[in-house]
Each structure stands twice: as C-alpha cells, then as structure tokens.
Design a protein around this nucleic acid. Structure first.
Length: 477
RNA sequence: GGCCCGGUGGCAGAGUGGUUAUGCAGCGGUUUGCAAAACCGUGUACAUCGGUUCAAUUCCGGUCCGGGCCUCCA
C-alpha cells in the first residue's frame, strides 16, 4: 500500500518517496493579500490542508510552509485606492484570511513566511543569479532572468521556448533583452515601498520570493510544491529556473496543482469578477460554523485536480450529505473502540486505498457513507458494541479529512444547543411550551391539534421528530 | 493560432475491458396516530462516429461541445 501522487512535472502518477525517510518538506503558494479570499482560494487552502493531514496520518513528519505575498503591484494599487498604508491593507487581509481558514478547519501551516520579511535572501539569490550570468540589469534598471540561459526552461508547462515565443505578447517599454525574460527585481517608482539593493532601491518581482522563501525554509531541494493550476506557468516554471539556476540542484520532486473553482463553467477569478468570497458564503448561512464545514466538505467531494463547478443547490446537497454522516455519528458515543473487527478493518483499508490513489477524496468519502449505513443498521439491530466500533472508525477516518469535527447535535441543530432564540427563531423555552401542549393533545388523541402545532413549528424552521418513548426531539434547520 | 484537460443517470461525483460506486432528489415498501429519521427495493448513465477485441462507458483514431494556460490570477 503506497501513496502515489500525480506529478505535474512528469504528467504521471508516481509512488511518493520522501527524500528523507519519514520526513516531508512541502511548500504551497499562498495568497496575495489585497482582498478577501474567494472559493478558489478556499480550495487551495483545503486541498493542501487535506494533503498534510493524510501524510501525517501515515506517520510522516511534515514541514508545511505556505507563503504570503505582501508586496506586489496589486497591493500597491489597492492601498492607493483605499488611501491606506500598504501594511494596514495587508495586515487586515491577512487577519481576514486567518479567520476564513479557521472557518474551513484548515490548520495553520508550520511556517507562513512573508515576502517583506525575506528581502535579504531575495537579494542574495538575485545576486547569485547575476554572478552566474543568468540575470542582468536591463536598460530600465530592472533586473531580469535570462531565460535562454537556463536549459530546462519549459519543462513544467510542457512547452518549448519557441512555442512560448509564438504565443507571447510582446511587451514594450521594458528593458528586456528577450521577451521571454522575466523580472527579478523592480526599480522603485515614486511613492512605492522599496528596499536598498545592489541595483538601487527597489522591490522583488513576484516569482523570486517563492524561490527564496521555499529554499530558505525547506532547503535547496524538497519534496512537494503545490498551488493552483494557473501558477504552473509562468510562476512555477520561473521558480524552477531561479532556484535550480541559483543552487545548481534539483528544486522540487513533486509538483501538485489543484483545479479551478468555476461558476457557470467559467473560471472563478478576481479579473473576471465572478468570485464568491468565503465570508459572504458563511454570512449567507444562518449557522456560519456549519457553513464552513459544508464548504470544506463540498471541496473534498470532488477530486482536487478536477474542475469544481459551483452552482445553485450544490451547497445544499453537500449539507444534506454531511447531515447524514453526523446523524450516524450521533448514534455512537465518542469513546475509543476496543478491538477492531475484520469488517471495520476492511472499511479502513478501502479508505486508505482511495487516498493512496492521488488523494481520491470522493472515493474515500464514499467509504464514510458506507460506514454510516452500517452504523444505522447496527443501531436498529441494537448492537451497541458494533455501533461503537463503527462510530469510532467513522470519526477516526473523518479526522484524516478534517471533517465531522463538530458536536453532532450542534451541527444538526438539535435541541437547546441549536440556534433557537436567534434570528427570529423561537427560543428553546417557547418551543418546549408548544411541545408540551402538543404532547397533551396527542395523549388525548387530538391529532388535528398536534399536527397543527407541528406545522406551525415547521413553518418557523423547527422540525419535530417523535420518538418511540413518547418524547419529541426538535431541531432547527 | 500553439499547448493541455475534460464530456458518466434529474443533480453532484468516483471508477472499471465483461460483475452495485457513493451522496442528494424521485418512486415503491417497512416503521409511525400522521410525520421525520432510519432500513429495504427501485433508474435501458457513460457526447458522437469509426477501429481493435469473444467483449468497450473503459483502449486507439476522427468529429462535435466545454474548460484552462500562453498576460496579473489559487
């Protein structure tokens, strides 16, 4: 049983072999903080959080680094629009990102380096590139990477230099020797943040920060580098050129790229303006805690490399599925199981096998649903030992995906732990009063009145479930 | 234009050269005073046209359609 991962570099699934036994170094390109995170960002956050959890569940010691880009053209533009200092803008959106992450149950990375905190190592790397003849200062003062000097250029995106040139739009007003060259260090313009450097005051180009920070945090050569599909070219291609050019060593073993979130079959992006922010989606739900998990579950419900088309009703479907899992989990007390039966082991094996196949989370989740059915069956058969055992397995496996972490009754809105009393919903005591009346009506076989009360509560979003012992349970939808 | 990826039942979404994915929704049944939940059962699903094969949704080729990258973008 070995984990295999699709490597964008070789375009194949490959057995995953950490460089050092038992240890994994992983770097993911994070956010440029000039706005709130949207669903596309949520996908990167959740997908790689899942990857880390799966690796750790296999006993691997993972060092997970995800950067923050806190200096760049867009941020400068945004700060000007808002008439705010740059660092006020970035720190606000960094805080917002951390809130969004928490709502999605995404664990913080082990390190979260920021570009502005690594200017010196960026400068050092640019200098090395220049010394090696791979970089030059152009006529406009900017420093560029000389793409033609790096033999492997195009390997990741699967393109030759000539192909790239055909498609390239010729940029004017730049001091490049070759249109394919890209900027490493930008000369400061008036009223822009800048740092002193051998090439004059300026700031880093986008690509170089990731090369500098990843090698500084994880070493010249590490295991996994991830990010969105759109970063494959040019960003990651350029990172390889910079890092390997500077160190002379192989940079990354496995490149992972997640697919896009789409809306109406079209990529969700800032530039198209068709994005949904995480916080808006959370705010749209009467229960934001639940909504965060629903979004996470929705993301895990499709394979990370496939497009995820967001459409009406899709969140409701995800929610209904989670409800089912939580309802089953609720039947089992949260205590560790004793012996593991062969049956439970086979579910665990199926779950592992699904994830072994390039993190096939939809397939793994299918196993969770099978467990839920078994729990329900065992519960009806009053086999409490089996319920406990299956329940523990469900919880343990769900944990690997970072789902089913809330209290089931809370998630399901059952009883007084629910949102009763807020947002126009009756308070728990008001509901209990109506239930007492209904109970009397039922005892005197006045079913018309009993049903009237049920309908009344139903309209207010309170659902009733009569239990065999005559009591009634209620939940807020 | 160049280079990639994909088209699975009402919806979402895995997978496989011959056998049930899974979930949501629907329908029938068990249960219930009635419900809800749960359980059981239930769908001529694999864009299209050719080819390979005893057998193709699954492999190969063409066609059509959709998406992405080539420019900031997760």
């Amino acid at each position: 049983m070995t984990l295999s991962i699709y490597n964008s570099l070789s375009r194949k699934k490959e057995p995953f072999q950490p460089r050092a036994t038992g240890r994994v170094g992983m770097y993911v390109c994070g956010m440029t903080v000039y706005d709130f995170c949207h669903l596309g960002h949520a996908r990167v956050l959740v997908v790689f959080d899942m990857v880390v959890r799966v690796l750790r569940s296999r006993g691997l010691e993972v060092r997970y680094v995800r950067n923050i880009t806190d200096i760049d053209d867009k941020i400068i533009v945004r700060a000007n629009e808002l008439s705010e200092p740059i660092d006020a803008v970035t720190s606000r959106f960094i805080d917002a990102m951390h809130e969004d992450e928490a709502a999605l149950n995404v664990m913080p990375p082990d390190e979260e380096p920021r570009a502005t905190g690594h200017i010196q190592s960026i400068i050092d790397m640019v200098r090395v590139l220049q010394d090696k003849g791979l970089a030059y200062q152009g006529s406009n003062g900017d420093v560029y990477f000389r793409v033609r000097k790096f033999p492997g250029y195009g390997a990741l995106s699967g393109r030759s230099l000539d192909e790239l040139l055909t498609g390239a739009r010729v940029e004017k007003d730049e001091g490049k020797d070759d249109p394919l060259d890209f900027v490493l260090w930008k000369t400061a313009k008036a009223n822009e943040p800048s740092w002193p450097s051998p090439w004059g005051d300026g700031r880093p180009g986008w690509h170089i920060e990731c090369s500098a920070m990843s090698t500084q945090c994880l070493g010249d050569h590490f295991d996994i580098h991830g990010g969105g599909m759109d970063l494959r070219f040019p960003h990651h291609e350029n990172e390889i050129a910079q890092s390997e050019g500077a160190t002379g060593k192989r940079f990354v073993n496995t490149w992972m790229h997640n697919g896009f979130v789409q809306i109406d079959e079209e990529k969700m992006s800032k530039s198209l303006g068709n994005f949904l922010t995480i916080r808006n989606l959370l705010a749209d739900d009467p229960d934001p805690n639940r909504a965060g998990e629903v979004i996470r579950f929705l993301i895990l419900l499709s394979h990370y490399r496939s497009p995820l088309n967001f459409s009406d009703g899709i969140l409701g479907q995800a929610r209904a599925g989670l409800d089912r899992l939580y309802a089953a989990l609720r039947l089992a007390p949260a205590k560790p199981a004793s012996a593991l039966s062969a049956e439970v082991r086979s579910y665990e094996a199926a779950f592992q096998q699904a994830l072994d196949d390039d993190f096939n989370t939809p397939s793994a989740i299918a196993v969770l649903f099978e467990l839920a059915r078994e729990i329900n069956k065992a519960s009806e058969a009053r086999d409490t030992a089996l319920v406990d055992e299956l329940g523990c397995a469900l919880k343990r496996l769900a944990d690997v995906l970072g789902i089913l972490y809330q209290d089931p009754e809370r998630f399901l809105g059952i009883g007084s732990g629910s949102r009763s009393g807020v947002d126009g919903i009756l308070s728990a005591s008001e509901i209990e009063n109506l239930l007492a009346e209904r109970r009397q009506a039922r005892e005197s076989r006045d079913f018309a009145r009993a049903d009237e009360i049920r309908d009344q509560l139903e309209q207010m979003g309170v659902e009733l479930m009569d239990r065999p012992d005559g009591s009634t349970e209620w939940r807020v939808r």
